[in-house]
Design a protein around this nucleic acid. Structure first.
Length: 568
RNA sequence: CGGGUAGUAGCGCAGCUUGGCAGCGCGCCUGCUUUGGGAGCAGGAGGUCGCGGGUUCAAAUCCCGCCUACCCGACCA
């Protein structure tokens, strides 16, 4: 490609709305442009990178025995009503459009479990057709409340997602492992340092699932990591080992004292009430009224300096729940006497400690101090109910664990029968006769997000530094002073034609601009190899070869350059 | 959805306090000179000052409403 003809405009300054490096560089280098908040155009260079990423995904998934198809982006809303997810998402969060004339309301697909289940269900009637894993690369739509960081969090995005169909759970787990391994290979080729972590399943559902996390300063997620035993989990799913003693000795008073604490519902409010430097948030019990996954009203107790981690399927009390359970007084909830009111009490392992606690008195504007576990209240079950922080003991080996900021690059789920049980057509004739339904897995990877992640992890202060697998072109050929020295122009033209003829992807900077501009643009665009032809070198019959990533420089003859690039 | 900031040429910004000719740098066009790390000179094009209303002889500037974007938080398959 001749740069004089390429639709690209590089910017010396980044637009004011770009905060993070990947966003600034992708815009400055002319790869992408913003159309609306969270909606981006891929200009020719950006599209080439996107295609390169997609190629890696296709090659690895095809090699793993998956088959590509393309599902619609528009889904009849009835499909989402059948699965129950229309209600789960809520009308606000599910982007829809109404098609007039023929009528009908369509969902702008945010994910494709429903569609793929009915699609494959219609084609598969026998266990003999299984196992089957299909995948697609498709535009998806998300109702992001706050798009940010360029391609990292957008409302329209390109995703690759695979779906596996198996005869039973064991077979599904085998398919899961195969795609899981393929995903690891994809990230390796994209030069991303990925850590698969145990994760919470959210609105997709299913039991076992993993997130593929890339540690990054721009990450919006955290995972916990144990360097001794390798335990890794999303902070939303992570648990911690027992034996943590948090906070100080607390209020020493052995007897329970009631305090009038008007207008102080929060932890910090109560701490300030006592005006005692010995008392901190860690001496209070945070009591969270929840409904557990079996619908039982349950009080979760965690140390006051911690954030609650709700187990999957649990939810916080809503206003109606407080009305139904008057023993729980919003803002002044405590564990004392709750079992007698039919409330389960569960506690984080951090609640085990010497001394006493300050708790809500279950009476408006009152708190209790000197409350002791097992004496003043009972705990029905102990567990890990607080969000893990750096230094907590690993739940497997007890060593301190670390919190790592990261970007979620992919998410894989063992769905099981969640969709096949509710969507029509998911039954097939089993080997032993009789009917069975699919055991499914799904595997999503944010392709457009990967551009941002790769750019974020592979750049320097001068510009992008693309890994070879995803660079839009392999070679950046710059002819210096070509407009002035015909020999240079001729030699550069000839080298360009030879390389292109040999199948090397070359971006040829044939513009009549000063050398400084060409060098700066080459650095900014970030192609792996830069070739420079100038009058000085040409007089000696050499061109300059330079690696963008290592800065290594060589002088090669024209012949050697061609040989070098073609043989690799 | 709550809090904050901003919207003036393609990009980055000044002007607004104290109302009075629409500005600067980069980029773009033409010409000449220049040419190994974002060249110089000369000339030129490009504007609904986010939108609507109000105050005023006069509004980019003051007032009211709205929209858009970004940041923090909430939310996030």
């Amino acid at each position: 490609m001749r740069m004089s003809r390429l639709l690209v405009r590089t910017l010396r300054e980044a637009p004011a709305d770009a905060e993070v490096a990947s966003h600034q560089l992708l815009v400055r280098a002319g790869y992408i442009r913003r159309l609306a908040s969270g909606v981006y155009t891929f200009l020719p260079l950006g599209l080439r990178v996107l295609h390169r990423v997609e190629r890696v995904i296709r090659e690895e998934l095809d090699a793993a025995g998956c088959q590509e198809l393309l599902l619609p982006a528009l889904h009849p809303i009835e499909l989402w009503e059948q699965s129950g997810r229309a209600a789960l998402f809520g009308s606000d969060a599910l982007p829809t459009m109404t098609v007039d004339g023929r009528g009908g309301t369509f969902v702008l697909g945010p994910t494709h479990e429903e569609v793929v289940t009915v699609t494959v269900g219609a084609e598969v009637d026998s266990y003999r057709q299984l196992p089957l894993t299909v995948y697609q690369i498709q535009v998806k739509f998300r109702d992001e409340a706050r798009p940010r960081f360029g391609l990292l969090r957008t409302r329209e995005l390109i995703m690759a997602d695979a779906y596996s169909f198996d005869v039973d759970k064991e077979a599904m787990q085998e398919s899961y492992r195969i795609v899981f391994d393929a995903y690891l290979r994809i990230f390796e080729r994209l030069a991303l340092d990925v850590t698969p972590v145990e994760a919470a399943s959210g609105a997709i559902g299913g039991d076992v699932n993993h997130e593929f996390m890339v540690p990054s300063v721009v990450g919006e997620d955290h995972f916990v990591s144990c360097c001794s035993c390798g335990y890794a989990a999303n902070v939303e799913a992570a648990t911690r080992g027992e034996g943590t003693a948090v906070g100080g000795d607390g209020a020493p008073a052995p007897e329970v004292v009631q305090h009038h604490t008007p207008g102080r519902p929060g932890i910090a409010d109560v701490v300030s009430f006592f005006e005692d430097p010995e008392i901190s948030a860690g001496d209070l019990l945070k009591s969270m009224a929840t409904v557990d996954d079996q619908g039982r009203p349950t009080l979760i107790l965690i140390p006051g300096d911690r954030e609650v981690r709700l187990p999957g399927g649990w939810r916080l009390f809503e206003d109606g729940d407080f009305v139904a359970h008057p023993s729980l007084v919003k803002g002044y909830i405590g564990p004392v006497g709750q079992q007698e009111q039919g409330i389960r009490v569960v506690a984080d392992v951090g609640v085990v400690r010497p001394g006493s606690w300050i708790v809500g008195a279950n009476r408006s504007d009152h708190h209790l101090s000197g409350v002791v576990v097992d004496r003043d209240f009972r705990v029905d079950a102990w567990g890990s109910f607080a969000e893990v922080v750096t230094g907590d003991p690993c739940p497997r080996c007890g060593e301190p664990i670390e919190l790592v900021r990261s970007v979620e690059a992919a998410h894989t789920f063992q769905l099981g029968y969640k969709y096949s049980e509710v969507m029509p057509g998911s039954n097939f004739v089993a080997e032993e006769g009789g009917e069975a339904v699919f055991s499914m897995g799904c595997y999503g990877m944010g392709v457009s997000r990967l551009l941002a992640v790769v750019a974020e992890e592979h750049h320097d202060d001068r510009g992008l530094v693309w890994p070879g697998e995803v660079a839009p072109f392999r070679v950046h050929l710059a002819a210096l002073g070509a407009g002035r020295v015909p020999e240079v122009a001729a030699a550069a033209d000839q080298l360009y034609e030879r390389l292109v003829g040999a199948g090397v992807e070359v971006l040829y900077d044939d513009r009549d601009v000063s050398p400084g501009v060409k060098f700066a643009d080459a650095d900014l665009l970030g192609l792996p190899i830069r070739l420079v032809i100038g009058a000085k070198g040409l007089a000696r019959g050499v061109v300059e070869w330079r690696s963008r990533s290592t800065g290594e420089e060589r002088e090669l003859t024209l012949e050697a350059v061609v040989e070098d690039l073609v043989s690799e």
